[in-house]
């Protein structure tokens, strides 16, 4: 029994880690430029199709395929910033959010036109599906890697935000963009860095999403990011620690329900999780780590 619990705990950590990576990417972009990036998940889709294409061309070496997927996710993020978000940079948050929403629809449907709506299987290496033994417990290697990568990414992000000038500038820009520019720092560079980081985190999460699903389809990124949004709100929207906490909380809640719900109503899991989060937010509208009210704090 305790083996089972340990297995599920690892499962929760890896699922939560995926949400945390995605929610962090959303929070970074939001904190720097107040943009709710609905197209965040579609960058993952771009990365997923990029990996799929590379595999189709016969490139099987994961050391080539995986970095290429991450790279293309980052490229998609940067390209999207240039094409869609830069023109609305000084507009209202609603305008930015709807722009992102529109961009998201465009990417999904371009994937639909060229790839069709059916999932396309991606050949994964055998070792991805294997498990490692921890005493008497079998843990899928994907989960171990995902948890590890998430923790490493969070540590790396903290280091970047603390010890590099551009990281400091990003933290400063979250509160006061004009003064950051007075330091001679290009606002553009800070924003592009934020997008690059969010794309990188999305790319990492994308690899694991692909590994779990074993297929690409036009909505592969949209659906998980929907949950990441909810995780970010649960943690406190715009807060980076909140994104991590919200992500893991959502992962744990999902896996717990999966374990305890009777078979007949297991299908309702997502509805129940979202509803429970709604109840939490009734009592704590700012989320777990959110500040309230943050009206007009940003100038």
């Amino acid at each position: 029994m305790s083996d089972y619990i340990l297995q599920q705990a690892f499962n929760a950590l890896s699922v939560g880690g995926e949400y945390a990576l995605l929610a962090l990417g959303l929070a970074i972009v939001f904190s720097v430029m107040n943009l709710v990036n609905f197209a965040h998940g579609d960058m993952i889709t771009v990365g997923g199709y990029a990996m799929f294409l590379l595999l189709m061309f016969g490139v099987r070496d994961p050391l080539l395929v995986l970095p290429f997927g991450v790279l293309m996710t980052v490229a998609a993020a940067l390209l999207l910033e240039r094409i869609a978000f830069k023109p609305v940079r000084n507009a209202s948050p609603t305008t930015g959010m709807l722009t992102a929403f529109g961009a998201s629809i465009v990417i999904q449907n371009i994937a639909l036109i060229f790839g069709g709506s059916r999932p396309k299987a991606v050949p994964t290496a055998d070792w991805i599906a294997s498990s490692i033994s921890l005493g008497s417990v079998q843990i899928p290697i994907v989960q171990v890697l995902e948890t590890g990568v998430t923790i490493a990414a969070i540590i790396g992000l903290v280091a970047l935000l603390r010890y590099t000038t551009v990281g400091l500038a990003m933290r400063a820009a979250a509160k006061d963009v004009p003064t950051v520019r007075l330091m001679g720092i290009k606002a553009d560079r800070v924003i592009l860095t934020a997008f690059a980081i969010s794309g990188f985190l999305a790319g990492l999460a994308g690899i694991f999403i692909l590994a779990r699903r074993g297929a690409v389809d036009p909505f592969m990124g949209f659906a998980p990011v929907l949950k990441a949004f909810v995780a970010a709100v649960l943690g406190g929207f715009g807060s980076l620690p909140g994104a991590v906490v919200g992500g893991f909380a959502l992962g744990i809640a999902e896996v717990t329900l999966q374990v305890v719900l009777p078979q007949e109503i297991a299908g309702f899991r997502d509805a129940i999780v979202f509803f429970l989060i709604g109840v939490v937010l009734v009592f704590r509208p700012q989320g777990i780590l959110g500040e309230r009210p943050d009206f007009g704090e940003k100038s």
Binding site: T165, L168, A169, A172, V180, M183, G184, I185
Partner: peptide, 10 residues
């Protein structure tokens, strides 16, 4: 210190 570091960012 971080404030001063940003002052010299350019």
């Amino acid at each position: 210190g971080e404030n001063l570091q940003l002052g010299a960012a350019c």
